[in-house]
Nucleic acid binder design. Structure first.
Length: 387
RNA sequence: GUGCCUAUGGUGUAGUGGUAGCACAGUUCCCUGUGGAGGAAUUAGCUCGAGUUCAAAUCUCGAUAGGCACC
């Protein structure tokens, strides 16, 4: 079985970005690469064969969801995630840390996302003092207590627990347990949370080494919100630990997410891969790559696909708009995806209106192909000196 | 032919005297480590006419159109 590794093939002159290859026990990931999200050990609406044939190299599943259902022990009994879900390529698992945010500070706040926006400045108090009876998650120094969104039962994650669960799941790349803070949290909270995430990183690493099963690589996660000094401090602390690679998490300002990624990339060890967590708008991917991120995962392409929004070169296309009902052209002229090769906008519009399951499937194929190939194109541009 | 019943947005319905509500469809928007094959906004209506009343989708009469029953 191959060891985990990362090799830089070519750098963007004068920038932090690069093209490279990550080696995992289940194959290579040519970077920059978009990581397809398969939260519950399935890329929604697609079979692994489809995921593979549209060009995906790697799939990310989620610790929180699989721990709750069907349980990490069961996945271990099944022989691990790869076998269980029939995905033979590289896999990642999220640490469950993001749910600390989505079940905690962001719970019930429809307008709150990782990105700072106008008019959502009211929840920092709740983030500090949230009660598991109100929100679904409560954070303390040792870990997080949360309620299952499935049946309301009470559970607890700690860095050690997250490592144990992720080892049971058996992905090639796993992440340290962290806290993704709300963009509306103030500086003091960001700092406290970041420092706690650093302590959790150390504990994650210790537990990971103690378990020492298989060939799993562990990535530490840099936090620090939108503040340059915190981001840089986090990069120094996390970058100084013995991780196999790094995740860049948390919240950003929409306008200069790239800048924030740059602060961090400049400090993290150059010879280890950097994963930008949860980022997936085409422009953000480009900015992330320029600023040193190697891999990206995001629910956007698959979620938007299921809701009728298709990604095209000019932006987005809402296939439910009336103008597409009798449009017998492909989603995008010249697109090489299976959907564009065989179906028209009118057909997709019909499937969505009729609420047919194939709608989500064909749209997911297109959006994933779009984003994966966009990222691949940037890789080629780097390798061939066009960037 | 006679009697009875029914008539509310595109569709299906709620509303028995005082702002016509809901669902679906329609239209548009949103989604960044999936609590999401989800969510939000919005367009559009009392069959027609006369009467009673301060006030009618609502009560009365007539017309029209359906349905049922009987001859």
């Amino acid at each position: 079985m191959k060891e985990f590794g990362f090799k830089i093939e070519k750098k963007i002159p004068g920038r932090l970005g690069r093209a490279g290859v990550i080696t995992t026990p289940h194959g290579e990931i040519k970077t920059p690469a978009f990581v397809t999200v398969g939260t519950k050990a399935t890329v929604k609406a697609l079979t692994p064969e489809m995921v593979n044939s549209l060009g995906a190299q790697v799939v990310l599943a989620n610790t929180y969801h699989l721990y709750l259902q069907p349980g990490d022990d069961l996945v271990a009994k099944a022989g691990g995630l790869h076998k269980f879900m029939n995905w033979q390529g590289p896999m990642m698992t999220d640490s469950g840390g993001f749910q600390v945010f989505s079940l905690g500070a962001a719970f019930g706040e429809g307008g709150v996302s990782k990105f700072a926006k106008e008019g959502v400045q009211k929840i920092e108090e709740l983030a500090k003092e949230d009660d598991v009876t109100v929100k679904l998650a409560k954070i303390d120094e040792d870990g997080v207590t949360f309620k299952s969104h499935i049946d309301g039962s009470l559970h607890r994650f700690t860095p050690e627990r997250s490592m144990q669960i992720q080892h049971n799941l058996g992905a090639d790349i796993i992440f340290a347990f962290d806290e993704c803070t709300s963009p509306s949290a103030d500086y003091d909270y960001q700092k406290q949370a970041m420092e706690r995430t650093h302590r959790w990183a150390k504990r994650s690493l210790d537990e990971h080494k103690k378990i020492k099963a298989g060939e799993q690589a562990l990535f530490g996660i840099v936090q620090g919100g939108r503040h340059q000094d915190l981001r840089e401090e986090s990069a120094r602390v996390i970058g100084g630990m013995d991780f196999d690679g790094f995740g860049i998490g948390g919240s950003f300002d929409k306008e200069d997410m790239g800048t924030a990624v740059g602060w961090v990339s400049a400090i993290l060890p150059e010879n280890k891969p950097r994963h930008l967590l949860g980022i997936g708008e085409p422009e953000d991917i480009l900015e992330g790559i320029k600023n040193g991120a190697d891999t990206f995962d995001c629910v956007t392409p698959t979620r938007m696909a299921r809701n009728g929004t298709l990604m095209v070169k000019g932006g987005r296309l809402n296939i439910l708009n009336a103008q597409y009902r009798e449009d017998f052209t492909p989603i995008e002229e010249g697109c090489g995806c299976y959907t564009c090769q065989h179906y028209t906008r009118a057909y997709l519009a019909h499937l969505f209106r009729a609420k047919e399951m194939l709608a989500g499937t064909l749209a997911s194929v297109h959006n994933l192909y779009f984003l994966i190939h966009l990222t691949e194109q940037i890789r080629q541009d780097i390798l061939e000196g066009r960037m």
